[in-house]
Computed example of a mutant assay.
Amino acid sequence: MSIVSSWEFNRDVSAVKRAAANGPVIITDHGRPSHVLLSFADYQRLTGTAGSLGDVFVLDEDIDFEPVRPRDSLREVDL
């Protein structure tokens, strides 16, 4: 597990992303741990989700949505 300061993270994001490929990277702010960067594969193992990133955001239920415009918002178009 690697530890980098937020300054180091901002200075070289690519290097920190490469380090995250080998395990979680703790990002510190003023010497205290504030964030953890991990690969998506590690995230999937941690959360028990499998599949693509798009699958994570798919809802299991249908949502009916019919936008209704208030009557007073109708206006004529002046061409």
Rank of each mutant, 00 (worst) to 15 (best):
V25F: 06
E76G: 12
D62A: 15
S39D: 01
D55A: 06
G54C: 00
M1Y: 11
Y43E: 06
V36P: 06
I3N: 12
I26L: 13
P67S: 03
R11H: 14
A19G: 09
R11T: 13
G54A: 13
V56Q: 06
P67T: 04
G23A: 13
R32D: 09
A20I: 02
I3Y: 13
S34M: 10
V77C: 03
L59C: 02
I27N: 09
A15L: 07
A15I: 02
A20S: 14
L46D: 04
G51L: 02
A50C: 06
V13G: 00
N22S: 14
L74R: 10
T47D: 00
I63R: 10
G48I: 01
R32K: 15
I63L: 14
D55I: 04
V4I: 07
G48R: 04
R75L: 08
D55K: 07
F65T: 10
S73M: 08
H30W: 08
K17T: 09
L79I: 11
F65Y: 15
A50W: 03
I3A: 15
S14V: 11
V25E: 02
D64Q: 10
N22V: 06
Q44M: 04
D64N: 09
F9D: 00
E8F: 01
I27A: 07
P70L: 05
R32Q: 14
N10S: 14
D29F: 15
A50Q: 11
P24M: 09
S14F: 12
D72S: 12
I26K: 13
F57E: 05
G48Q: 01
V68M: 03
K17F: 15
R69C: 12
D60A: 13
I3E: 15
